[in-house]
Design a protein around this nucleic acid. Structure first.
Lengths: 129, 129
DNA sequence: TAACTGTACTATATGTCATAATACAGTTGA
DNA sequence: TCAACTGTATTATGACATATAGTACAGTTA
């Protein structure tokens, strides 16, 4: 399920957070589902348990998951809504990125077309419930 | 001219590269223009000279600027074209970002509108020659 | 009771970033 | 010629984030 690239510039714990967010948003991990334990996932990915816990801790802090000591970690009921709000902040990044492309002389239609492609790829992927 | 935020997560040398790229693309720094010297810019920004040199070295390697030992650094003649190609790679980033937003349930029209805003802000900014 | 769960802690290693201090060779103008 | 600039190179040092390693504790479950 999870995959990790140790050679990536992006920290491993961020990769795990990012993947878990996508699993929740795409419905692969539904609210209430128990996540793989810190130790089992660390062994599966050949990664230190502390790295997994760092990812889980941050998601727990944000309310996306919740942990029950002695039992395990679970996807929160309002995880999808929380992630929706969280991802909305990326609109600012997209705005900056579009400004960069405008400055570099890339045509507006080309950028708009890229957005269209991203959305059609998403729809065809059957990720809409 | 240049500004630096030491507290930013983005490395200082990357900030300088980014700003210089924007100055070139916006016409503030034209081809042939001599850049501030490593030492003078380091003093102006209260930054170590090595940090400036790291930024200049990378831009020199990419051909955006060229350096003449004993004289100084200058904006290359084909800098704008080089930067155009370089920035085009960001279309891939924008594609990924748009997919993220689609997955998070943000409406396509909202994303398209953000792109429109970025381009209209660019035009009104008078950055087109 | 054994085996699992999350959590906490210290120590260590690594790589990137930035600073500090020199040093060298080339250019320029007084 | 000489002082003052230019880019370039080198070594040492410190701060910081990331990741690993090992250990430990408390709660849960079959």
């Amino acid at each position: 399920m999870f995959q990790v690239d140790t050679m990536s510039r992006q920290p491993v714990y961020e990769q795990i957070i990012h993947q878990l967010e996508r699993f929740v948003l795409s419905g692969v991990l539904k609210p209430g589902t128990q996540l793989p334990s810190v130790r089992s996932l660390s062994m599966e990915l050949s990664i230190n348990p502390n790295t997994i816990q760092k990812a889980y801790s941050e998601l727990d802090l944000r309310g996306v998951i919740y942990s029950v000591p002695g039992i395990g970690c679970f996807v929160s009921e309002n995880a999808v809504a929380l992630l929706g709000e969280h991802k909305r902040e990326n609109l600012g990044l997209l705005y900056q990125l579009a400004q960069e492309l405008a400055l570099a002389g890339i045509a507006k239609d080309e950028v708009l077309h890229t957005v269209e492609q991203a959305y059609s790829a998403h729809d065809k992927g059957g990720n809409t419930i």
